[in-house]
Each structure stands twice: as C-alpha cells, then as structure tokens.
Amino acid sequence: MTSPRTFSRATWRPTAGILARWVLGATYLYTGCHKALHPVDFLKLLRQYELFHSAPALDTIAALLPWFEVACGLLLVAGVAVRGTALVSLLMLVPFTTAVFHRALALKSALALPLCAVKFDCGCGTGEEFVCHKLLENFLLMGLSCWLLAGAGRKESLRYALKEDASQFL
C-alpha cells in the first residue's frame, strides 16, 4: 500500500502536468485564433513596437505568428512534442514580454503614470490590459513552459499513447 505522501506525489504531479499543458495550449489557441481572425489589428499593434523596420519582416510576423501560436496550442493540447513546444513557447514569451515591458516603460514616461497604472493593448490577443497583470500572466506562462520543458505533462499525451499502442504490436 502506498503512503499518503507517495500517493500524492504519484498522482498530483502528472495531473497537474496535464492541466499545465492544457492551460498553456488553450491560451495559445485562444490568443492565436483571436489574432488570426483580426490580422490587420495585430499588424497595427505590432507596428507600434517599432521592432521591425522592413515591411516584409513586419508582414511576415503579423501574418504567421498567430497561426504559429494556434499550431503550438494544438500540439500542447494533444500532447505531441510537448517539451519541444514548451521550449518554443519560452523562446516566444521571453522576447515578447521584454518588448511589452519596454513599451510599458515608454507609456509610463510619456503619460507620467505609475507602471502598474499603464493600460494598453499589447497585441497579445486579450485586448487592453493593465501592464502588471499582463507581465504576471506572461511570467506564469513562462513558468508553465519551464515545467513542461522539465518533463511534466507527458501523461495523456497523444505521442506516448501512440508509442505504447505501437509497442504492443511489435
């Protein structure tokens, strides 16, 4: 018989891993679909960051990033290439959060407001938000990505289910 401690460790971690995968996946699906349905709005918001000075670079990011997020969301929800997708998620979140922070600082300075009172549409697919909420949200998503990257969230994952089914026939 397993001790309560062993039981909790054995059951809690995989369940939380699945939840983390689904939360991160659902977030990417929602924000990606929102941006993909309104690509011009996303293009205009992206332009405000002044990160891309050539039109093709700006167009490519605005056209492809929303659908790329949808693809990542689908992979995470289904549980295919979870650790690889988690790494890609981190690589998207870190520079984007930095850009949001820089823009928030610019607005803070221009509007003479405290940082947490700055509210703007960062192009994240969630509309206008207070910057501190947005940054906290992004840090949580980064935390989930790190955890998935470390190997959580493999349970109920399509790739492993397929692998196990295949091994039965071999």
Binding site: A71, C72, L75, R83, G84, T85, L87, V88, L149
Partner: peptide, 8 residues
C-alpha cells in the same frame, strides 16, 4: 529537445 523544438 532541441531537435523536437526545431521540428515544431
């Protein structure tokens, strides 16, 4: 993991 992320 790196290969997997490249594929993603």
């Amino acid at each position: 993991i790196l290969w997997e992320s490249l594929l993603v």
